[in-house]
Simulated assay, not measured.
Amino acid sequence: MASLPADFAPVLVQFIAASGFIGMTMVATHLLTGRRKTSSTLRKEDPWECGIPVYGDARAPISVKYFLTAILFVLFDVEIIFMYPWAVNFLKFRNAGLGTLVFGEMIVFMLLLLAGFYYVIKKGVLKWDQD
């Protein structure tokens, strides 16, 4: 069955509507927002956070271990997301005669997960007492 150009009319209408919304939003924000004065004082340009005076550098270094721990959490969390549907549907696989194959694939998956976890432990990423 061939596609006709008329079949794509809803997509074109949606694209035009989205583009129009974006354009109108940009024009409205340009017209409705205030202008920045060129002769600002230092007091006007200070950042304001709950009335607390600013001191120090806002770009203070943060330990890389914090970010590594966050990335590891996301990594293992995503792997759990892959394991949950497998566990829910395992009986269906087993009844279809694929139980051994699917179980073997999960064993390989878990071995790769544990190999990565072993690597992380050996690298000392989870040791917080060292700098």
Rank of each mutant, 00 (worst) to 15 (best):
L4Q: 15
D7R: 00
D7W: 03
F8A: 10
A9T: 12
P10T: 04
P10V: 01
P10K: 05
V11E: 08
L12S: 08
Q14F: 13
I16S: 07
A18H: 01
S19E: 06
G20F: 08
T25P: 01
V27E: 07
T29A: 08
T29E: 11
T29W: 12
L31F: 13
L32T: 12
R35K: 10
R36F: 12
R36M: 13
K37Y: 07
T38W: 10
S40I: 04
K44W: 07
W48L: 09
E49Y: 15
E49M: 07
E49N: 13
G51R: 02
G51M: 04
P53I: 06
P53M: 03
V54R: 14
G56Y: 03
G56H: 06
R59D: 15
A60P: 00
I62S: 13
I62N: 09
V64M: 10
V64Q: 15
Y66I: 11
Y66W: 11
Y66H: 14
A70D: 11
F73D: 05
V74Y: 05
V74R: 03
L75K: 03
F76Y: 15
E79M: 14
I80T: 11
I81L: 15
Y84I: 11
N89E: 15
N89S: 12
F90C: 02
F90N: 00
F90W: 12
K92Q: 14
F93D: 09
G97A: 03
F103Y: 07
G104I: 02
G104H: 03
M106W: 03
I107E: 10
V108Q: 01
M110C: 02
L112Q: 06
L114C: 10
L114F: 15
Y118D: 08
V120Y: 07
V120R: 05
K123E: 09
K127I: 10
K127E: 09
W128F: 14
W128Y: 14
D129A: 04
Q130Y: 08
D131P: 00
D131V: 11
